[in-house]
Amino acid sequence: MTLDLFLQHLTNGISLGSLYALIAIGYTMVYGILRLINFAHGDIFMMSVYFAFFGVATFGMPWYAAFLLAILLTGALGILVERTAYKPIREAPKISILISAIGASFLLENLATVIFGGRPKTFPQIELFTKMVDVGAVRIQMLTFMIPVITVALLIGLLYLINHTKSGMAMRAVSKDIETARLMGIDVNRTISFTFGIGSMLAAVGGIMWGLKFPSILPLMGVIPGLKCFIAAVIGGIGNIKGAVYGGFILGVGEIMLIAFLPELTGYRDAFAFILLIVILLFRPTGIMGEKISEKV
């Protein structure tokens, strides 16, 4: 393998990893605050791609307006899912909440199938993002460079939000202890909705860039990325935002490199993430950056 080819794979891996990271952040934020796997997160991601698709392709909006609207709608959808599927049973046994989450996920997938149709649609190609650029001997899509930059920028913004604003402080308080946070006068419901909204909007940014990069879009397109990004969040240490980003990169680069170096294993690409998950869970269940949580006896 030449150095150029290796660099091309690495760039692709980082780019894919950045997308994973954006979606993984949503899982990790929700888990951090509610100790819940938001099974529907992958489908919220899928919906964002369709929102953007309809904005540009059906309503002929300029791409930036359509993308912005799609991001806002996705945030609202995330809050809607939280309000209907999770909030009413927040005090119920964990197993019930998880089942509700699975129900919400299937509901979104099937609604999408009914409303948008089961056939693949082609996401609009926007010249600014999809044009090819030459770097040395390799030709790479502009988007491949833009994705990591946008991801890092959003991550910095998010970390600022969490660590230096009042809403961020509320989020951190609620994730430590919901009851105490409530006693301290924090509007817990609002904070949880806010978390879902932010997580979903980040997933939407990921979704739109995903659509530009892999233009064939389907109602079930959120399932595998959803699972993989949850795995990325676990690898990084669930509940930890930086961890989710590292997890996303590890998974994205690992996957691309696996195919590059061992092309005969391409069919096992989707199994790679799960094998990694199981290995991590067994040897370091709290992930790279997670804290240990022990049960009180």
Binding site: S96, G103, F106, E109, N110, T113
Partner: peptide
Amino acid sequence: GLRMVVFSALLMVVVL
């Protein structure tokens, strides 16, 4: 897919 919409909604209604 409408049938599956019904079933997913059913699962949620039962759990909720």
